[in-house]
């Protein structure tokens, strides 16, 4: 698995009249090393870490240059720095909602769903509505739903910075298990 950014230029619209240059002729070649569960891209703060992931996920388009994704990656999912689950829905309903965006139904992946719920310690919480402030819990829902939706590569946008230390460790352990079991490539900034 490989993602290449070739001579990327990208500017962010800062206001109606101003544009902030984020990347100019920026190139990066990221390869998956199966010895590690997470590939970490190190960049200082305010150097466009989120923009980098969004370019890789195709959420934003570069003004010049191109992003080349290897053919073994069919789906790249971007997980933002704060969770994006529906607080009016239960864990199971949230997963159903997320799957519907990938044109999938829960019934299509029922067995895998049960396994993933078990692995991620969400077993018994299927009918529970996630607390809006429980970020770790909500990230777990998003990650397992992304795997169920068929993501081969998951981009984590600084998600651990909003978690307390024990929760971050638990989530990293889960990611390690998922990376091994499902061969999912996690890239974190």
């Amino acid at each position: 698995m490989n993602i290449q950014l070739k001579k990327i230029s990208y500017s962010l619209t800062a206001s109606h009249f101003k544009e902030k240059l984020i990347f100019r002729d920026f190139s990066l070649d990221i390869n998956r090393d199966t010895n590690f569960s997470i590939t970490k891209v190190l960049l200082p703060n305010n150097y466009g870490k989120s923009s980098l992931l969004k370019l890789m996920a195709g959420i934003i388009k570069p003004s010049s240059g191109e992003v080349v994704v290897s053919s073994d990656i069919k789906k790249i999912v971007y997980i933002p720095s704060l969770p994006a689950t529906f607080n009016f829905a239960t864990v199971e309903q949230n997963i159903e909602h997320i799957l519907s965006f990938a044109e999938l139904k829960l019934a299509d992946v029922k067995d895998e769903y049960k396994t993933l719920v078990e692995i991620s310690d969400l077993s018994g919480y299927e009918d529970h509505r996630p607390d809006p402030l429980s970020f770790g819990f909500r990230f777990r829902i998003m990650i397992i739903a992304s795997i169920l939706a068929g993501a081969q590569c998951i981009l984590l946008d600084d998600i651990f910075s909003h978690l307390d230390s024990p929760t971050a460790s638990e989530l990293k352990e889960l990611i390690e298990i998922l990376a091994q079991k499902y061969s999912t490539w996690f890239i974190e900034v």
Partner: peptide, 9 residues
Amino acid sequence: RYIEFFSTL
């Protein structure tokens, strides 16, 4: 972030 996450799916 809702649009960003769901549009990648």
